[in-house]
């Protein structure tokens, strides 16, 4: 089972790299935000899997919860930023 989990984790990571390509490409900041948010969610899975590999899931699960919560908060904050700051391009952004 452990090798499977190992493989699953690696697969997750590789997929994260794929998602990360979107973060690199952009084109807008919000695209980045989206892909980073996805990466964040996937990290929860990764931590749970790591917990299983260490066979100490009881310890890792707390982190996973905390992680999920904070990821959510960060995403909401960033989103709120754009809701207030109703522009996307930085050049005309907050300079008004």
């Amino acid at each position: 089972m452990i090798p499977f989990l190992y493989g699953a984790g690696l697969f997750l990571l590789i997929n994260m790299v794929l998602v990360f390509i979107r973060a690199v490409q952009g084109p807008t900041v919000i695209d980045r935000l989206l892909s980073i948010n996805v990466i964040g969610t996937k990290c929860i899975n990764l931590i749970v899997i790591a917990g299983l590999i260490f066979s100490r899931l009881d310890m890792f699960v707390d982190i996973a919860i905390g992680y999920g919560l904070l990821n959510y908060i960060a995403a909401v904050c960033t989103a709120k930023f754009y809701q207030h700051n109703k522009t996307l391009s930085p050049d005309s952004g907050a300079s008004s």
Binding site: F20, A23, G26, V29, R32, L33, I36, I39, G40, C43, L46, I47, A50, G51, F60, I63, Y67, N71, A74, T78, F81, P90
Partner: peptide, 23 residues
């Protein structure tokens, strides 16, 4: 160039760091 972008990416940086430490 956009500071928001770097902040967002930096968030991902920290989250990934967290995975490394867990591992």
């Amino acid at each position: 160039r956009d500071l928001m972008g770097s902040v967002i990416v930096f968030g991902a940086y920290s989250f990934l760091m967290c995975v490394v430490w867990a591992c």
